[in-house]
Amino acid sequence: MNQIVPYTQQETNMSLDNTSCPRKAGSEELVPSRYAVRIGEIDVLVISDGVLPLPTAMLAHNADPAVRAAWLNDMFLPPDAFDWSLNAVVVRSGEQIILLDAGLGLDPDLNLPRAGQLVKRLEAAGIDLGSVTDVVLTHMHMDHIGGLLVDGVKERLRPDLRIHVAAAEVEFWEAPDFSRVSMPSGFPDALRSTAKRFAEEYRSQLCQFDEEHEVAPGVIVTRTGGHTPGHSVIRLASGADRLTFAGDAVFTVGFDHPDWHNGFEHDPEEAARVRVRLLRELAATGELLVATHLPFPSVGRVAVDGDAFRWVPVFWDY
């Protein structure tokens, strides 16, 4: 059974004691921003990168507006815009410290002051950027790579840092197609420019794979496509325990309406097929799920609910 446990200081400089609570009295943050899970011998820390306010229409631009509004009302969510969670994950497997996605970073043109918190929250958790041996990217949207572009971050990273990403993803962003997305104004340009800058700055450190790649013992990244051509999920396995980090394959609304198209999906129909297939697998295995935009700490399981699914959050452990 998956255990949720405190951590101790390690020689890797990854200190995660009392990870589900604010680090010290008087902290400026009133709510937890990190949550620890142990998957067998693999240590996992979910870290909140903050929240991203977006129009609710982006949840399902192919749905009847009245049906979408009814779902929002049933979920006690505001009708026009609400905050999407932004989650990243730190994994320790053996001697490797692996960052799964790198958060939004700080883009002054987007005016998103409550997002882009990953770097300071890593520091608050006692995680030295220089101890990170690998980064695995689910895809190259800016809310998954931007943290590596924050001023001063690259200089603090190891010169031999390995950044694992699907080859199809790198190729896609050389000439990205936005013809089937439904994003607010300004986002396509920001996504395009961020991906271009990222590829230029980190190209020599990219470790590209085709379909599947073992990053560390028990840490496998697999390309799914759909959301973007190279979108990937990361599966952790140790002993009898399993956890999947699904990136943007799953959104909150996707359990009730897996066929609804998210505005950031570059191939909406394929993204829906990926989502259904992944949710069916997770429901069958009973393993833990974490995803970028599920409400923090985004740790739970999937159950089948008729023709749809049901999200079952874990009970917090202290």
Score class of each variant (00 low, 15 high):
Ser193Arg: 12
Met1Asp: 14
Leu243Lys: 04
Pro108Ile: 12
Ile220Val: 14
Ser238Gly: 13
Leu118Cys: 12
Ala283Gly: 10
Val233Lys: 05
Ala115Lys: 03
Gly103Thr: 07
Val253Ser: 08
Arg38Cys: 14
Gly50His: 09
Gly130Asn: 12
Leu45Pro: 01
Val51Lys: 07
Ala168Cys: 04
Arg203Thr: 08
Phe315Lys: 09
Leu129Pro: 11
Arg203Gly: 08
Ala246Leu: 05
Gly50Lys: 11
Thr194Arg: 07
Phe296Asp: 09
Asp134Gln: 11
Leu137Tyr: 08
Glu28Gly: 08
Cys207Gln: 14
Pro78Val: 04
Pro229Phe: 10
Arg121Gln: 11
Asn18Trp: 11
Ile42Ala: 10
Arg301Leu: 02
Ala175Arg: 10
Arg203Trp: 06
Thr194Asn: 11
Asp17Ala: 11
Ala271Ile: 09
Tyr318Phe: 14
Phe264Ser: 13
Glu200Ser: 15
Gln10Ala: 12
Ile4Gly: 03
Leu149Ala: 00
Asp74Ser: 13
Glu29Tyr: 15
Glu174Met: 07
Val165Asp: 02
Asp248Ile: 02
Val135Trp: 05
Gly239His: 02
Lys196Glu: 13
Ile98Pro: 06
Phe172Trp: 15
Asp305Phe: 03
Gly105Glu: 09
Glu29Trp: 15
Pro313Trp: 07
Met140Ala: 03
Arg273Glu: 12
Ala166Ser: 15
Lys196Leu: 08
Ala167Ser: 15
Ala271Arg: 05
Leu288Gly: 09
His164Pro: 06
Asn73Phe: 14
Pro159His: 09
His213Leu: 02
Ile127Gln: 02
Val46Ser: 09
Ala195Gln: 08
Ala308Ser: 13
Leu99Thr: 06
Gly225Asn: 07
Ala216Ile: 00
Ala190Tyr: 02
Asn87Glu: 08
Ile42Leu: 13
Val136Ser: 04
Glu11Arg: 01
Arg242Trp: 02
Leu243Cys: 04
Asp241Leu: 04
Ser27Met: 10
Val165Cys: 11
Leu288Arg: 11
Arg162Ala: 10
Trp173His: 06
Arg23Lys: 13
Asn87Thr: 08
Glu11Lys: 13
Glu155Asp: 12
Gly26Val: 11
Glu201Tyr: 07
His141Thr: 03
Gly116Tyr: 02
Phe315Trp: 01
Gly26Lys: 13
Gly152Cys: 09
Asn13Ser: 13
Asp49Tyr: 05
Trp173Ala: 00
Ala57His: 00
Ser179Gly: 01
Asp17Thr: 14
Ala190Ser: 14
Glu169Tyr: 08
Ser27His: 15
Asp101Ile: 02
Pro159Val: 04
Ala199Cys: 08
Ile47Asp: 03
Ser85Gln: 05
Asp160Arg: 01
Gly50Asp: 06
Ala167Val: 05
Leu161Pro: 13
Val276Trp: 01
Gln208Lys: 10
Lys154Val: 09
Ile42Asp: 08
Pro229Asp: 04
Trp311Glu: 02
Arg114Lys: 12
Glu200Gln: 15
Glu270Thr: 10
Thr12Met: 05
Pro113Trp: 10
Arg192Trp: 02
Ala102Phe: 03
Cys207Trp: 12
Gly218Leu: 05
Leu30Lys: 14
